[in-house]
Simulated assay, not measured.
Amino acid sequence: MSTPPAQHETPPPPVEGSPTAPSKRRKTPGKKRSRPANGKAGRKRRGKKPAISTKRLVAWTSLEILGLAVATLTGIVVLLGYAAAKFSGTGFFSHLLPFTLGVLGLILTGALLLIGWMRLRSWLQQKKMFLPALIALALALVAGIMTLRGDFFFAFNQFRILVGGKEEAGRATLAHQVFAAYRRLDTAQLRQLIDRAKPFDREIDAAASAFGLDPDLLHGIAAAESSFLPRDSKDGGQGLFQITQIPESAMQAAADRLKVAKPQPDDHRHNGYLAAATLTHYLAQMRGDLFLGLLAYNIGPKNGGLRFIMQQYGATDFVTVQPYLQQLPRDYPIRVLCYALAFRLSRTLGALPAYEEGLNAVRIQQVGIPGL
């Protein structure tokens, strides 16, 4: 018997999801689906802020710190200066305690302002990255404008006395003696003196530079000694600086810088170097005290010199030695620095402003006394 041929059955359709099931969508190899141009992803990409470079961030932060530092330091100086002036004294309840409470209040206020600034800074940075730095620099500018006013300079001087103590208080007292002496000088005579000094300016400046001194200070000595009329005096003084007895170490120092065997006091250039060397010698002897150094320069070795006089009477500074100098020119340092101030004003401002007019007193004090 022959076997009937097998019948071909149609296989059942594959179940969806099985490995043999054809995919509904076929990906074309090598092609990517394009995203809609106006989709959400596109909107997010356009709305995102561009990243800020590290250099720019550091620059803005540095400017912000600089501005805040200037404004903060100025505020501290002003507040402490005014507090020191208002509560100066030795009474506990009337002076010391109020000042201490004021310092405590300043610290607490500073902490609150810092917290407020950090919150404001976060809000400003959300607007523009440079806004905190811009506002900080604006505060620094306002503080800088304040320093030009007389009120700030008063507060600054009080702050210096507060920190410097007895030494600074004495220096401030003597400085005001110099300012008062300048105020009494005749402006026309001062201009004439400055004009007479012009032929010697270069030589005096060179001598000051050789010994690291302020050239206006040397000009002040020459003005007090000779009024820039070089001559020989009865007491043996010679030239612009009326050189008399020169310490041996000063003579050698001048010779070394001039590169000569022995300086000649009748030579204007040598005379200036000898004066600078002598002043440097006495400044070292008086431990850098300008008033005592000038006084020692003027006295010289007479009566054993200034150092011996101070030891004899137990004086420690210019203020305490003044009463014992009845027979000696105790006002000599004031006169020298008064003339030196006039030369500095002429050099820096191009004029000799009247001390009592307008804000000239503040301007002159800001220029400062040569050597101080």
Rank of each mutant, 00 (worst) to 15 (best):
329 P>I: 00
84 A>Q: 11
180 A>Q: 15
251 M>L: 15
44 K>Y: 07
60 W>R: 03
268 H>A: 04
158 Q>T: 00
175 A>R: 09
100 T>F: 14
268 H>K: 00
271 N>K: 08
137 L>A: 10
307 R>E: 09
95 H>R: 06
204 I>K: 03
200 F>K: 06
245 Q>V: 12
82 Y>Q: 05
307 R>V: 12
80 L>Q: 10
136 A>T: 12
158 Q>W: 08
53 S>H: 10
22 P>M: 11
255 A>R: 10
181 A>D: 14
74 T>C: 06
334 I>V: 13
259 K>D: 14
236 G>Y: 08
4 P>V: 06
334 I>D: 06
368 G>H: 01
234 K>N: 15
111 A>L: 11
244 T>F: 03
279 L>H: 02
328 L>M: 14
18 S>A: 14
195 D>I: 01
339 Y>E: 03
297 Y>R: 05
315 A>T: 03
55 K>R: 11
248 E>P: 00
90 T>D: 12
64 E>H: 06
62 S>Y: 05
133 A>R: 03
158 Q>F: 04
112 L>I: 12
361 A>R: 14
251 M>T: 10
90 T>Q: 08
99 F>D: 00
200 F>A: 12
171 R>K: 15
366 Q>Y: 05
220 G>C: 09
101 L>E: 01
142 V>P: 08
294 L>F: 04
109 T>R: 05
173 T>R: 15
345 L>Y: 03
227 S>D: 12
246 I>A: 13
301 P>A: 05
295 L>K: 05
370 P>E: 04
129 M>L: 13
